[in-house]
Design a protein around this nucleic acid. Sequence first.
RNA 1: GGUCGGGUGGCCGAGCGGUUAGGCAGAGGUCUGCAAAACCUUGUACGGCAGUUCGAAUCUGCUCCCGACCUCCA
Length: 499
Amino acid sequence: MRDLTVYNSLSKSKETFIPIHKGLVGMYVCGPTVYSDVHLGNIRTFMSFDVIFRYLKFLGYKVRYVRNITDVGHLVGDEDEGEDKIAKRAKVEGLEPMEVVQKYTNGFHDMMRIFNILSPSIEPRATGHIIDQIEMVQQILDHGFAYVANGSVYFDTLKFAKEKGTYGKLSGRIIEDLLQETRDLKNQGEKRNAADFAIWMKADDRHLMKWNSPWSVGFPGWHLECSAMSTKYLGAHFDIHGGGNDLKFPHHENEIAQNEASCGCAPANYWLHTNMLLMNGRKMSKSDGNTITAEELFSGHSRHVEKPYSPMVVRFFMLQAHYRSTLDLSNEALLAAEKGYKKLMEANAFLQKIKTEDSEKNAAIETKIIQLIDETFDELSDDFNTPKALARLFELVPIINSYKDKKEGFGNISAPTIELLQDCFDKVLFEIMGLRDENARSDPGSEGALDGVMQFIIELRQEARANKDWGTADKIRDVLQAQNIVIKDGKEGTTWNLK
RNA sequence: GGUCGGGUGGCCGAGCGGUUAGGCAGAGGUCUGCAAAACCUUGUACGGCAGUUCGAAUCUGCUCCCGACCUCCA
């Protein structure tokens, strides 16, 4: 197995990835809070972890990938009296909270499918794990790192920080600074310190989602569900924990604290964080409206974009940036990605059709190809560097295309090398990067029929061309073009493909 | 205000001590009835100012911008 290097947010450096159990990887990623449609920023994060999941599997690891659905406890606003996001939405839409949850969970799953993001191994919901969460609250209380106040339970951050000395390690926060926050929080009354946070909250009568507990009828705190569910399915100590950069603090920091307080050990060895998707140079965010939806991208109906872009173009666009860098979305960048994506897919489609035959081989090119293939996997193994891996693939494209033209000096590639190349493109593009060839005629039933018709039309056009009837030849091409079918007259005959 | 990250050629985006990253756009050429595609050739950029070094986009200091987190967000 190739050595894999990952950037660990905990150490702020790249480390060699060594799983706790040989050959097995446990990975937990914070999923969405299902109170509204997913937006592109979420999608980028889940797509990044999708590639990570796919690559780990490619390397031969058996991966248990847990990605939760948060459907309770996430509050609006910055103080503990804020409304639950789901409950608020339920009121607005006149639905049962669970209907809201189902609606947006369905929407989320649809979007994951559209972007070819694989389902995780387990997708647990917070509301399905209330008992586990109550047990964890109890453990934290038993260990003295929480206190009950008026039916709610708060995590005693200061005590935890003093005794364990690890609080703030992930996010670089210093407890003293947090305590000195002068921000004017309305509901500080029950908390001993500003840095404390609720792990169980007493619900008022009007609250829609609430459960019985030893402390009150209420609901779990936002950070708790991840601690409880990761522990339940991956154990107290697992390999990778991931999420968006904006979750580092307070969410992940508090998650770590909860885990340590309940079972005495840090939950994950490696913390991976994806960076933000930007638009207009600013974070794309649900709450401030600086956003574009996936549907708007697909339809082109947005002032930020001048034409529609397909899901795979968007996926490719995101793959061209490293997951730890911010990525600025713009029409121009999308346009460039679309061209590049098509070029790569066309080269691949041609490559996969090459019949291997033994012929005189060119040692220099053989070496170059093998080296580039090797480098492609090196890049992926270096903290999942998809942009660099794609760059190597793009360097292979001219070699592939020159084979098409049967130019002097190229084309003399041995069968095993061609097979290696075919395998590399297939694995990297589809299995690892999760792309799909949108140009490929996907419906096998209609393919035969359309292909037959196209062969006939191309034949007719060839006759016209042979008779130098350029008018007819061009008309056929123009009409087909209007139907989004592109005709290309190559040296080896005419080919066609759907635009 | 505190903490952290970033400023790379027309655009996107890698790299982080010595190499052409790559994509898109642009220019010239080959091919072609014309086109498209493909192929070949072409661009010497790293916010600014000092410094370290044989050598810096890459390290250090200062400085100017921008962003993220600190409050719900992937």
